[in-house]
Amino acid sequence: MLFGYEWDTSHGELAFAISILPMLLRGLVVTIQASLLGFFVAMVLGLLLAVLKSAPSRLVSWPAAFVTEFIRDTPLLVQLFFLYYVLPDYGIVLPAFLTGALALGIQYSAYTSEVYRAGIDAVERGQHEAAKALDLPPRRTFTHVVLPQAVPRVIPALGNYLVSIMKDVPVLSVVTVLEMLNVAKIIGDQTFNYLVPLSMVGGLYLIMTLVASALVRYLDVRLPKRGIPLR
């Protein structure tokens, strides 16, 4: 029994599969929640890192570049263990789910920051020159000229990271998060049938990532090509 549902082990594989589907779907919901929260953190933190990395002062840009490199070159699992087991020693106790989503977000912010930076660098020099000729302050230029043009161009690339994050969520099972793979493993442990739950996890993953990819493609088509319109 899991989440109040009973598994049916006595009427064949199909009945078993149907009986455990609600449990796996509960796990799937957790997986999606962790993915979305992690993706949100990666989008926001990545943008922040990108901005810091392109700061004119090296006092700002170098530490930001170092942090990015450090995050990117250490395994997600190490970061996750660190957040989960070390932070409580310093009085910061977060629930497992939150810790996991945060670790995903931090890991992926290193990647998204590079994507943002590519987008920011791709805004033509003429745009900066026009803004300067009009005497627009640098900050206003960044927020109202550069970013509205940079962000739409990188959304497809960012979206691909959403799919990657989804596939990394099972790592969170090591800190007891009941995401879909963890649920399947518990079912297997209890019923000695691993084939059915794990196959179903694979199938559900495929559906989820296909939907996410389609969503990203749809966004790409619908996005304004010339930047976020400012009326």
Binding site: L134, P137, P229, L230
Partner: peptide, 20 residues
């Protein structure tokens, strides 16, 4: 030209006078 492609013609003309 270097117009701001994400702003309407009007906004291209009003952005700097308003901000600066």
């Amino acid at each position: 030209f270097n117009l701001f492609p994400h702003m309407t013609v009007l906004r291209n003309l009003t952005e700097a006078p308003r901000v600066v």
